[in-house]
Simulated scan of single mutants.
Amino acid sequence: MFRSFLFISQIYPYGRMSHHFSKLQVGDSLSVRGPKGRFLYRPGAVKALGMLAGGTGLTPMFQVSRAVLENPKDSTKIYLIYANVTYEDILLKEELDNFHRKYPGRFSVHYVLEKPPNDWEGSVGYISKELIQSFCPAPSPDIQMLRCGPPMMNKAMQAHLDALGYSKETQFQF
């Protein structure tokens, strides 16, 4: 079966696949498998989604956000904390900012940069327990916390969520 889709990738100097991806041209084909993992979202199943994303880990968060926000029957609120190394690494920034403008009170995004520019107004460093506490919904059975990023980030985010009292049932890692 052939399907076309939007493919987002960052090119990293030492990335395993980056050099291969950097040589692809528009119109080239690529065989892929996946997606890995099973996240099933049902509209209105929770009152809020907290999302912790790093780098290209934004991809499933963006897809879920778009599906939730574009469903007029779904009132789920979304709280995204999105971490990157530099400003230039932020994927889909314009689209995320448009979600924030178009769906006030339903979608919020907070950016975190490890190496910010001088005029940066977002957070600096990494996603911390304090940031999660400040920008995401509090632990509750009627919220879901999603995370996706590099392995070390996922491990740290799980530890933060556990320490803050989010139950295993309310956490999902892509």
Rank of each mutant, 00 (worst) to 15 (best):
Ser31Ile: 15
Val32Trp: 05
Pro35Lys: 04
Lys36Gln: 15
Arg38Phe: 13
Arg38Gln: 13
Phe39Arg: 04
Phe39Lys: 06
Leu40Pro: 04
Leu40Asn: 14
Leu40Asp: 15
Arg42Ala: 14
Arg42Gly: 12
Pro43Ser: 07
Pro43His: 07
Gly44Thr: 07
Gly44Pro: 11
Gly44Lys: 10
Gly44Val: 00
Ala45Asp: 03
Val46Gln: 05
Val46Leu: 05
Val46Met: 07
Val46Cys: 11
Lys47Thr: 13
Lys47Leu: 10
Lys47Val: 11
Lys47Arg: 15
Ala48Thr: 00
Met51Ala: 12
Met51Arg: 08
Leu52Met: 05
Leu52Phe: 04
Leu52Arg: 07
Leu52His: 06
Leu52Glu: 07
Ala53Cys: 06
Ala53Asn: 07
Gly54Gln: 01
Gly54Leu: 02
Gly55Ala: 04
Gly55Trp: 01
Gly55Ile: 09
Gly55Arg: 09
Gly57Phe: 07
Gly57Asn: 01
Gly57Val: 05
Leu58Trp: 12
Thr59Ala: 12
Pro60Cys: 02
Pro60Ala: 00
Met61Ser: 03
Phe62Tyr: 15
Gln63Leu: 12
Val64Arg: 05
Ser65Gly: 03
Ser65Val: 10
Arg66Lys: 15
Ala67Phe: 11
Ala67Lys: 11
Val68Ser: 02
Leu69Met: 03
Leu69Gly: 01
Leu69His: 11
Leu69Val: 00
Leu69Gln: 01
Glu70Thr: 13
Glu70Trp: 02
Glu70His: 03
Glu70Ala: 05
Asn71His: 02
Asn71Leu: 07
Asn71Val: 09
Asn71Lys: 10
Asn71Trp: 09
Lys73Pro: 02
Lys73Gly: 12
Lys73Phe: 13
Lys73His: 14
Lys73Thr: 13
Lys73Tyr: 12
Ser75Gly: 04
Ser75Thr: 13
Lys77Ile: 05
Ile78Tyr: 03
Leu80Ile: 06
Leu80Lys: 00
Ile81Lys: 09
Tyr82Ser: 05
Ala83Gln: 08
Asn84Cys: 12
Val85Ser: 14
Thr86Asp: 05
Glu88Asp: 14
Asp89Ala: 00
Leu91Val: 11
Leu92Phe: 15
Lys93Ala: 09
Glu94Lys: 13
Glu95Phe: 04
Glu95Tyr: 03
Asp97Ile: 09
Asp97Met: 12
Asp97Tyr: 01
Asn98Glu: 15
Phe99Lys: 08
Phe99Tyr: 14
Phe99Thr: 02
Phe99Pro: 02
Phe99Glu: 08
His100Thr: 15
Arg101Ile: 10
Arg101Tyr: 14
Tyr103Leu: 11
Tyr103Asn: 10
Pro104Arg: 01
Pro104Phe: 08
Gly105Ala: 11
Gly105Leu: 10
Arg106Glu: 02
Phe107Trp: 08
Val109Ala: 13
Val109Gln: 08
His110Cys: 01
Tyr111Ile: 05
Val112Cys: 03
Val112Lys: 09
Val112Asn: 00
Val112Thr: 06
Pro116Tyr: 10
Pro117Met: 05
Pro117His: 03
Pro117Gln: 02
Pro117Tyr: 08
Trp120Ile: 01
Trp120Lys: 04
Glu121Leu: 14
Glu121Tyr: 10
